[in-house]
């Protein structure tokens, strides 16, 4: 643990990332306390108010108000809940699915490997957007469905990376040596192989947390995302695109929040990657 702390302190970028992330997570958790207004409360007479420092701005809406007079700051704060939830849960779903299937595929080989890889092929060859539309058409949009769509369709890249890593690690000297010494395969997997395949998985996962947050926005752009009853950055961005000139703040602030979060996740992820990979730690 001490070592972890030491390493964390050494990377200034990672510290910055962790700090931003902490703020985001805190604001997500404490949204009802921190947010000055109800994010859904509309007041059409106060619509499209610019941020407080602009002409016609009002202290009531620090970051301005949207097309229905809802408070942009409050919505941005609440929005972090949706974005973080979508990113993290979807990655957990797809990551676990992918790692398990990839390992099974690589170790079992044969028919099971072939089957899993064919399913992966079908999944990859099938346009994601179509699946999203179909799910929305059948069961409706909404937070849970967005998470499920992203989570379930995302496993393939994990499975493929894990599979190819395992295949190349399997033959390496230290694994061979461990096997020769009579390690059981489960032990082998956890002691020798998993640590070695986790590096690319973590790189992929950090990237995916971020990209799922962006994907949520894109789905909303196509009208397939989270429902308006839940304020999300995706909805704010998608709504804001019609107001790029008349109300730039509607999209800029959730956009900034999204970027900062993505940036910080990536900084932390990079550090994590270097921490997990001992070879890198010693050379940098």
């Amino acid at each position: 643990m001490g070592e972890l702390w030491h390493s964390l302190r050494r990377g200034k970028a990672a510290c910055l990332g962790a700090a931003i992330l902490l703020v985001m997570v805190l604001s997500a958790v404490l949204a009802p306390v921190v947010a000055p207004h109800d994010p859904l409360q509309a007041e059409i007479t106060k619509r499209l108010r610019p941020p407080v420092w602009r002409e016609k701005g009002a202290a009531e809406n620090l970051l301005g108000s949207d097309q229905l007079g809802r408070d942009v700051l409050s919505r941005t704060i609440y929005g972090s809940r949706v974005s973080l939830m979508v990113g993290i849960i979807a990655v957990l779903i797809s990551g676990i699915l992918g790692v398990v299937l990839g390992m099974v595929s690589a170790f079992q080989g044969g028919r099971l490997d072939a089957l899993i890889m064919r399913i992966a092929d079908v999944q990859l060859a099938f346009p994601f957007i179509l699946l999203a539309i179909a799910v929305v058409a059948v069961v409706g949009g909404g937070l849970l469905n967005v998470i499920l769509i992203l989570g379930v369709t995302g496993w393939v890249s994990y499975a493929r990376v894990v599979r190819s890593q395992v295949l190349s690690v399997k033959e390496k000297e230290y694994v061979e040596a461990a096997r020769a010494l009579g390690s059981r395969s489960l032990v082998l997997i956890f002691r020798q192989i998993l640590p070695n395949v986790m590096t690319p998985v973590i790189v992929l996962a950090t990237f995916n947390v971020a990209s799922y947050m962006v994907a949520e926005a894109s789905l909303t752009f196509l009208g397939l995302g989270v429902q308006p009853a839940i304020p999300s950055w995706g909805i704010m961005l998608a709504d804001g695109r019609e107001y790029m000139r008349a109300g730039w703040w509607m999209a800029v602030f959730p956009g900034l929040a999204l970027m900062l979060t993505v940036l910080s996740i990536n900084l932390v992820g990079d550090w994590l990657r270097e921490y997990l990979d001992p070879r890198l730690r010693h050379t940098e």
Binding site: V136, A137, G140, G141, L224, Q227, P228, A229
Partner: peptide, 9 residues
């Protein structure tokens, strides 16, 4: 509660 649907749905 507002729910948005795709046109066909």
């Amino acid at each position: 509660k507002v729910t948005v649907y795709e046109w066909g749905t």
